[in-house]
């Protein structure tokens, strides 16, 4: 049942009042909620730590390691990119420790990645931005081609793979991709970036059953209590007040 009874960290800080917010957040977090203790470490160290350390008890994700879609080079790229998009800090978990790479890997290996629910008949034309996605690429094809493109762009402009760049340079590379300033060999930079960012956010804020949002840490960070949600008797009690109930995911109930 996970940590049903624990008070979520952000909620605790709110309840404890303004003074508590000035106390070292990580110290509080360690007492209340061990899974987010890596916040205090620098981003890369946190990532290495998360990978090297044995899993905390009852973290159901950790029996699910292994890659269904990404090859080892792609895993390195994806983790470097995720660590840049959502680095770990005292506010909340980084995308890597949250499991966004696992989420993305499973999505791309499955029906969604292979283009289910995507109309793929030609002819294909670029169209206007208002006409939406028009590439003859499934999400899996798009992400894979774009990873190779961005890696090549990093090598061409920074003489190193994304994973070997420092945090600031990685952020600069991805900003150029985000803003469409990077000329990529095969895919439109902005479209690739949007897709990568959307998948990141889905993994970060989605139910942990999908492999991301480990320990519901992203939900706890913002104050979303998850599922199942029965507030008929609470909506009056918590009007204009911080909610103090448990944070639960599908696995906690199923």
């Amino acid at each position: 049942m996970g940590d049903d009874k624990s008070v979520d960290r952000r909620g605790f800080l709110k309840v404890a009042g303004a003074g508590a917010a000035l106390a070292p957040a990580t110290a509080l977090a360690q007492k209340i909620d061990p899974p987010v203790q890596t916040h205090e470490a620098p981003a890369r160290a946190a990532m290495d730590h998360a990978m090297a350390m044995p899993a905390p008890a009852a973290a159901k994700h950790d029996s699910l390691d292994g890659w269904l879609f990404f090859n080892p080079d792609e895993v390195s790229f994806v983790k470097a990119a995720l660590d840049t998009l959502i680095p770990a800090d005292p506010t909340g978990p980084g995308a890597v420790e949250a499991g966004c790479a696992t989420y993305m890997d499973r999505q791309l290996s499955g029906a969604y990645g292979r283009g289910a629910r995507l109309y793929m008949q030609g002819p294909f034309a670029e169209g206007t931005p208002q006409q939406g996605y028009q590439l003859p690429l499934t999400p899996a094809d798009l992400i894979r081609a774009g990873i190779a493109d961005v890696e090549a762009y990093a090598l061409a402009t920074r003489k190193a793979r994304l994973r070997d760049l420092d945090a600031a340079t990685r952020a600069a590379v991805l900003t150029e991709v985000d803003q469409g300033k990077a000329q990529l060999a095969h895919v439109p930079a902005g479209i690739w970036f949007n897709q990568f960012l959307n998948l990141t956010m889905e993994g970060y804020f989605g139910d942990p059953i999908y492999g991301g949002n480990k320990d519901k840490a992203a939900w706890k960070m913002i104050g979303f209590p998850g599922v199942p949600a029965m507030y008929a008797d609470m909506i009056d009690e918590f009007r204009n007040k911080p909610y103090t109930g448990a944070t639960r995911g599908i696995q906690d109930i199923a």
């Binding site: 969604y112 283009g115 289910a116 629910r117 995507l118 109309y119 793929m120 889905e202 804020f205 989605g206 139910d207 059953i209 999908y210 998850g226 599922v227 199942p228 949600a229 639960r248 995911g249 599908i250 906690d252 109930i253 199923a254």
Partner: peptide, 22 residues
Amino acid sequence: LEPSKDDEIRFAVRHELMQDVS
């Protein structure tokens, strides 16, 4: 039924109950 029904990815992002545009 709960809890599977409260699945944002499945229903809201991947549109399980909606028209399949493929």
